[in-house]
């Protein structure tokens, strides 16, 4: 019996089942399970090295990671059979933790190429209008258009540009990899407002962070805590607050306890 269709719950946009992945032979993900339904916001928290960034990179298809087992289904399709370009064109977006500089390529030229690649070619004049409006929304000066992509950008400028790309490209699923790190409070608010705009437009979001701070601005439906490459604890938004007061040791202790119980 299929509960989901019978009860009217939307089919998941992303299903990660028992995912194991490694880099240079070193296992990072050790059986991740995650189900994201359309329009949901999932926050993934955890210490550095717990595998949360790896998850977003593996979902996008980063070539350095090897999937050793498990499944990723996107809108019911086997994601692992799609290359990076196909994943992007199918509506998956990754906001990079460390956005890459593309020297010699202007921001406007890059964004227009990306739109074209997504099959959304717009006339030059309309594009300039769109871009100008998007810049204004994110507090980015128009002079950005001719600067080279992420070349000599400050950390905050890079993160704003990532969010701008998300808003312009209109993905179905956005993986935001520590988009909040390195932002001052004003930049954090601006970036959060951009994320909320995407959420309001129906984008499903997986928000990877190790601070609770951004969750004061972007309200998650679900919070998951990563530990040793798997989801150690899941809950509602209140879990983030608990984490803030009790720390990750609490999750570790809990994981040890539940292991002891199952043993």
């Amino acid at each position: 019996m299929n509960h989901e269709t019978n009860t009217g719950v939307a089919a998941p946009i992303l299903e990660v089942l028992g995912l194991r992945a490694s880099i240079s032979g070193k296992p990072i993900l050790n059986g991740v399970d995650l189900v994201v339904r359309p329009g949901e916001v999932h926050a993934i928290m955890g210490r550095n090295g717990s595998g949360k960034s790896t998850l977003s990179n593996v979902v996008m298809g980063h070539p350095a990671y090897v999937v050793d087992g498990g499944e990723i289904r996107y809108q019911g399709r086997d994601l692992l059979r799609m290359d990076v370009t196909e994943r992007a064109r199918a509506g998956i977006f990754l906001a990079f933790q460390y956005p890459v500089a593309i020297p010699g390529v202007g921001v406007a030229q890059f964004l227009r190429s990306a739109l074209r690649a997504m099959g959304r070619e717009v006339p030059a004049r309309e594009f300039r209008k769109q871009l100008s409006a998007a810049f204004a929304d994110l507090g980015i000066p128009d002079s950005f258009a001719t600067r080279h992509v992420n070349d000599g950008f400050s950390g905050g400028e890079k993160k704003r540009l990532e969010i701008l790309q998300m808003l312009l490209l209109q993905p179905k699923l956005a993986l935001l990899d520590e988009t909040d790190s390195g932002l001052d409070i004003d930049a954090l608010r601006t970036v959060a407002a951009g994320i909320n705009r995407a959420i309001a437009q129906g984008v499903s979001v997986v928000l990877v962070t190790h601070y609770q701070r951004i969750l004061e601005y972007v309200r998650p439906d679900h919070v998951h805590v990563f530990l040793d490459g798997r989801v150690a604890m899941s809950g509602g938004p209140e879990l983030a607050t608990q984490l803030e007061s009790r720390g990750y040791e609490w999750v570790e202790a809990d994981a040890v306890a539940s292991q002891a119980v199952s043993a």
């Binding site: 996008m60 298809g61 980063h62 070539p63 350095a64 290359d83 990076v84 370009t85 994943r87 992007a88 064109r89 977006f93 990754l94 990079f96 956005p99 890459v100 500089a101 593309i102 890059f110 190429s113 990306a114 690649a117 997504m118 790309q165 490209l169």
Partner: peptide, 16 residues
């Protein structure tokens, strides 16, 4: 290759 991955994640083909 990190830059290639970045551009492909924006929908560009490998050769583009």
């Amino acid at each position: 290759e990190e830059a290639v991955f970045f551009l492909r994640s924006r929908g560009l083909t490998r050769s583009d």
